[in-house]
Structures are given as C-alpha cells and as structure tokens.
Amino acid sequence: MECQECQKRPATLHFTQVMNGTKKEVHVCEVCAKEKGYMTYPEEGYSLHNLLTDLFNFESAPLGNTSGDTFMPPKELQCPQCEMTFTEFKRVGKFGCATCYHTFSNRLDPIFRRVHSGNTKHHGKLPKRKGGDLHAKKQMESLKTELKHLIENEAFEEAATVRDKIKDLEKQMRGENE
C-alpha cells in the first residue's frame, strides 16, 4: 500500500482517526506523517500520543457550554495532589498523578470514549487487596436480589439457604475489615 499523502513511498503507519464522530483510516509513510503532524517524536516511533493531544484540544470547543460563563471566567480545574491543571493535562496528554483521575473525573468520559472505542469503565483484573472487598460487595448485591426474588415467589426453603449465605458473607467481610 502506498502512502496516501505522497503516493510514492510505502505506507508504514496505519491507524483509524476519529474526528467529529466520523472515522477515517489513515495510511501514510513516516516522512509524510512527520510533515502532516501525525507524528512529532520520530524516536518514539508511534504517533498515537501526539494524535491524542490533538483530540483533547478540540474536545473542549464543540462540547463546552457556550452560554452562561462568558462574563465569568471559568475556574481552572487543578489537581490538589500534583497541581496539574486541566489545560496542562490537555496539552501534555498525560496525567500527573492518580488523584488527577478524580479531579478531572467529570471531563474524562469523552476522552476515554475516543481513545478506547466508546468505553469509559474498567472490566478487568482487580488488585487482590481491593479485589477481595469488591468481589464480596458484588456477590452480596446479587445474593440480596436473589433473596428478594425467592421471598416474592414464596420459595422459603431456598430463601433460608440464601439468607445463610448472606450471613456468612457478612461475617467474612467484617473479618476482612478488622
């Protein structure tokens, strides 16, 4: 496949660019990628990070509210932990610390959606330490729904077993927290 910009060299960078909701496939050679600004750090090779900062930057314009705060300068969001501002985050394309995720939390969904094909929530491995707790919480929820269901259907024998399970789990959770 040849580069879509120069139509001479073979295309070596291939990616899908999502701009204003429309998908565009880009196939370019490295020289054109640099020239057209798809890539600015040649030694890092891959251009995604640079693409990202571009994505963040136009995110605020079309999505930001256009009314109301024209005469009140909006207060700059700043992370209390590492002092990174949201403007700085958009410029660099990197978070400063774990707390940034909470500080900027309201404004991250559109960014994550763009980067991760529409996803905003984690569905994977949990740290063991926090995981134990989380697993128990989720299990508890489903047991309680089950119990409610069984009682509504007057299946009292099964309900009793489920109730015992809930008690055991409660004990277990209390034990873990001590």
């Binding site: 995604l48 990070h49 990202l52 394309g93 990197k94 978070f95 774990a98 995720y101 909470h102 991250l108 960014i111 994550f112 980067v115 991760h116 996803n119 905003t120 929530k121 984690h122 569905h123 994977g124 491995k125 949990l126 740290p127 063991k128 330490r129 926090k130 989380l134």
Partner: peptide, 25 residues
Amino acid sequence: LEEKVNYAFDETRGYLTSCPTNVGT
C-alpha cells in the same frame, strides 16, 4: 509485586496510568 506495592487503582477506571491510552487494564 502487589504484596508489597499499593497500586493506584480506581473501581471505575481500573489501573491508573500516566497516559490515558493505558488506563484500565
């Protein structure tokens, strides 16, 4: 490693990383 390290983790976002392209898993 986690036995000794308190990882940056968030229930919604998963493992927290410097670049938004790595967050989650």
